[in-house]
Design a protein around this nucleic acid. Structure first.
Lengths: 164, 164
DNA sequence: CTAGTTAGTCTAATAAATAGACTGAGTCGA
DNA sequence: TCGACTCAGTCTATTTATTAGACTAACTAG
């Protein structure tokens, strides 16, 4: 993995990691989904160094995850909002939240509840199959290379075969 | 966010970010789900510096995401495997894969297919509500503080209210 | 005895993150 | 018009993390 040639990478996890893979980005995005928009509010809530925050916001803008929107003139001030591509990261944040809630919350339970507006329940969303409605988890999914790649060696980071 | 006091944090995203939040960890975990187990194989597939790999594997072991299993004696050699806690990260990796597939794959489509073994289809798993079976996305979920926290100010990183 | 395997460690150089002061363009109140 | 305040950053010097690549350890196989 050469991070300066990431655009030539096929692997979706690698491409995504180039955007999401650091200490702060997931936290910034989490705040975005909670309604945070401007620099000072991110900075205070996260206690993130201003330099780092500025760098991250710029990077997320470059990757079309956030966009800057003018919300005041004299002086011009911009806030940061999720693009559609950014909003599509909600399932990622939500599953991270599920995991954190399961393994790190204290006896009082998760600090933030998620209400599913169509039905009104507080939920932990689950991953399902769009074809058969059954659950999806590590042990009932098999990774395969696509048909046009004939052999495993055509793929840099394909599945590893064992006893098969 | 003080990263050396992360254990006192309530926020599930913060706790999870302390484990997952860096360049390499998501890629390492992705390889774990694809069946990679030993040091050399991680190192070659990811082209990760050996020092960094050793540090990451140790960190993941400390956080009970991976465990070391003796697979050979003379000399003793260990491989790295997912714990149950680690396997529970599958939804996170899977939603990241969905996002990467959507925004970064070329005309040939995603390089890795995921077959749902119960039904045999190649799928992109979707996030659903366990109560009403309807889809879950950024715009039909409302974050709320839990009842025992009376006001927003009781929560460091709760939802931001707007026009309400 | 030599080469090969695997899982690391060591070192020096480079890159990134950090704390905290500072800047710039304005508003508001007295 | 002065002084204090707001907000979105930038600047600098220091600390921390990452990196490439050589090296080590404990064996096996020929």
């Amino acid at each position: 993995m050469k991070w300066d040639e990431i655009n030539n990478e096929q692997c979706s996890v690698a491409r995504s990691s180039a955007v999401l893979g650091d200490r702060w980005t997931l936290l910034i995005l989490s705040d975005c989904f909670l309604g945070v928009r401007n620099f000072a509010e991110f900075q205070e809530r996260l206690e993130i160094p201003r330099t780092t925050l500025a760098n991250r916001l710029q990077k997320l803008e470059q990757h079309d995850v956030l966009y800057r929107k003018l919300y005041q003139t004299n002086p011009d001030r911009y806030e940061y909002r999720l693009t559609n591509k950014g909003s599509d990261l909600y399932p990622v944040l939500s599953t991270i939240l599920n995991w954190g809630d399961k393994y790190y919350s204290d006896s009082a339970g998760p600090p933030i509840l998620r209400e599913h507006m169509p039905c009104g329940h507080d939920i932990q969303p689950v991953l399902k199959c769009p074809e058969c409605e059954e659950g999806v988890h590590a042990h009932n999914i098999r990774a395969r290379i696509r048909p046009q790649d004939k052999t495993l060696s055509d793929v840099k980071r394909g599945p590893v075969l064992r006893r098969g």
